[in-house]
Amino acid sequence: MKRYLLFVVLLVGLLVQAACSNSESKAAPITVENVRANMTMPTDTGSFWMLITNNSDTDDALLGAAVDGCGVIELHDMVMENDVMVMRPVAGGKIPIPAGQTVELKPGGLHVMCMQKAAPLALGTKVKIELEFANAGTITVEGEVVEPAMSSGGMNNN
């Protein structure tokens, strides 16, 4: 009886391990997390922030995005140069996501810029965003509408 139990435990252990390593090797090449939509203001623009991780060993790049209610979407960067805020479309129109790295789109930095916004969205609304990658193809993720000021996660760390 004891032997039989030990055998079952071992078997279960092996199965669990197999399942784990299996899911690891099958991890999506690109994962997108913490998607936030800055879309509440009564203006024509908005922005999206997120964490994009490249789990593969090939470099990838974000090429563009699409969201219902945004007439035009561009990929932008924002930098502070001697107290002057500078916002520009990213070089080459793409955001590189190097192999094995996580790139952060965040307030005051890289963002997916929504222009010709149809209407402001209410806080907490879920928004679908279609992201187009050079290698990984199209990935659709869901974000939540947040307040523009709240979104600055690192605000108190400066």
Partner: peptide, 17 residues
């Protein structure tokens, strides 16, 4: 300016608070 989607609103949001 209003077109600015996050730097300006962050400051306004802080001042509101």
């Amino acid at each position: 300016y209003r077109f600015c989607p996050d730097v300006c609103p962050v400051t306004m949001g802080k001042l509101k608070q």
